[in-house]
Design a protein around this nucleic acid. Structure first.
Length: 463
RNA sequence: GGCGGCGUGGCCGAGUGGUUAGGCAGGGGCCUGCAAAGCCCCGUACUCCGGUUCGAAUCCGGACGCCGCCUCCA
């Protein structure tokens, strides 16, 4: 049984699936108006891990993540840069998927785009107008939040208390400051779609209701996103579903923020608030490991010291792969527990990890278990129990693979000169010519290699 | 004003009412020709003050500090 924190209830509870063995997940994706930032990286990693884990456990997962390709910020950038909205969207969506690939985030099964669902949104909005839960103003159509009795469920407060603090701004034709735009009338030179209530474009909150229900159907299992979407975005999705008399998500799950804590550091050393930038300066797996090592609902601090910490921990994992020559797992392929043999220590490890993961995705404790097992495998090997050591190491690798983290033994293209140095050094060592061997090692190090002496001779790898 | 979260050893970061989290860094040792990798050992922790308890970092109350949401945001 998988247990997961449900934001709507404010507690960890059993994941109740619409149909046994199948998980339908909708994750609120990015607006493609800019380069992805660290927060995008975190939420995609968190839900990628969840998806992979569910799959690993034998569940059939339908994973949907939308792309918002119509939005004020997109229009603003297009106008600022004197190009079309489409050019902006095309560029930044490509950047998005490029970053996702580098992060090792598996592609969703469906990636609906808002602009492909405008007709359906218009239809929904029209039905709201008919039913009088929405109203027309001079600049568009607004949803009347007071028409939904339990509005505020996800925010954890009733409508009245939300209203007190809400900052009133802009359009005072709104009946309540909390009412939100379903449709924005087009201004000159803005993208527009025809609608009976005036040409324009959809507001942000409508696309996810329409697309999630279209692709996953009513009463789908899991609706995920960043904590900041809890209110008002998800609240507003819920409100629309309720108003449309549709049963919406069974569970709501939200991941915590990314903090860039040490501002001084980030300013001087590496101010990588851009995910793209981070991925250029570090092994992308380090970010995944950093994310895995804190609970998904906690905030994480991403800064040079925490990244460096993760990189060194990664070294330790990779050295296991080197020692046992483990194959590369994860990546675009989702691992299945059933494709591995679990016995003895491996089975116990698998069960401990599963217990932790199934308890609200306790990745930090699961990772701790895997590090423990890593040590055990090394000890076994040191003591000469090669076969069982290898089995355990393979299980560690498989379980990291289940979390989307590949252990890399590090295969490298070795040029001829380097190869000759390695052979010369081996010869020197056989001849017990240590001075020569050390000189050759220095030379290899200068050429950027890390040199280790293994049972079979000189081993080199890149740092 | 309303709602919510957090405060763990040098750093990151889990967790349970009573027995080692884990990683990184540091110290010592084993192994090694020397290293590296690996292994072993070491150190210290639970913001503060009360309370409940045989026993609390873990429950309750209070204080202090930090943060978030209520507005576009992953």
């Amino acid at each position: 049984m998988i247990r997961l924190y449900d934001t709507a209830r404010g507690e960890v509870r059993d994941l109740s699936l619409r149909s046994p063995g199948r998980v339908s997940m909708y994750v609120c994706g990015p607006t493609v108006d800019n380069l992805p930032h660290l927060g995008h990286g975190r939420f995609t990693l968190v839900w990628d891990v969840a998806r992979r884990w569910f799959t690993f456990q034998g569940l059939s997962v339908h994973y949907v993540m939308n792309i918002t390709d119509v939005d004020d910020k997109i229009i603003a950038r297009a106008s600022r840069e004197s190009r079309s909205e489409n050019a902006v969207v095309t560029q930044y969506e490509a950047e998005w998927w490029g970053a996702m690939d580098r992060l090792g985030v598996a592609r969703p099964d469906d990636t609906p785009h808002a602009t492909h669902y405008v007709d359906e949104m218009v239809e929904l909005i029209a039905s709201f107008l008919e039913r009088d839960v929405a109203y027309v103003t001079s600049d568009g159509v607004y949803f009347d939040v007071s028409s939904v009795p339990d509005y505020g469920l996800l925010a954890g407060q009733p409508l009245e208390s939300l209203r007190v603090g809400a900052r009133v701004e802009g359009n005072d034709e709104k009946r309540s400051p909390l009412d939100f735009a379903l449709w924005k009338n087009a201004k000159p030179d803005e993208p527009r779609w025809p609608a009976p209530f005036g040409d324009g474009r959809p507001g942000w909150h409508t696309e996810c209701v329409v697309m999630s229900l279209d692709l996953l159907g009513e009463s789908f299992d899991l609706h995920c996103g960043g904590l900041d979407l809890k209110f008002p975005h998800h609240e507003n999705e819920r409100a629309q579903a309720e108003a449309a008399h549709k049963t919406f998500a069974r569970h709501w799950a939200h991941n915590g923020w990314v903090m860039v804590g040490d501002e001084k550091m980030s300013k001087s050393l590496g101010n990588f608030t851009s995910l793209t930038e981070l991925l250029e300066m570090t092994d992308p797996r380090a970010y995944r490991l950093l994310v895995l090592r804190s609970h998904y609902r906690s905030p994480i601090d991403v800064k040079p010291s925490t990244i460096a910490d993760a990189e060194r921990a990664l070294d330790r994992l990779d050295s296991l792969a080197r020692r046992f020559g483990l194959p590369v797992l994860a990546g675009e392929n989702l691992e299945l527990a059933s494709s591995h043999a679990w016995e003895d220590e491996s089975l116990e490890l698998f069960e401990r990890v599963a217990t932790l993961m199934n308890d609200d995705l306790n990745t930090p404790s699961a990772v701790a278990e895997l590090f423990d097992a890593l040590s055990s495998a090394n000890v076994m090997a040191d003591e000469g129990h090669e076969a069982s050591a290898r089995r355990l190491a393979q299980s560690v690798s498989a379980l990291f693979g289940a979390l989307g983290l590949s252990l890399l033994a590090g295969s490298h293209v070795v040029d001829e000169v380097t190869q000759r140095l390695v052979l010369q050094r081996d010869a020197a060592r056989v001849a017990r010519n240590w001075a020569e061997a050390d000189l050759l090692r220095d030379e290899l190090v200068e050429r950027g290699w890390i040199v280790e002496d293994g049972a079979s001779g000189t081993l080199i790898r890149r740092p």
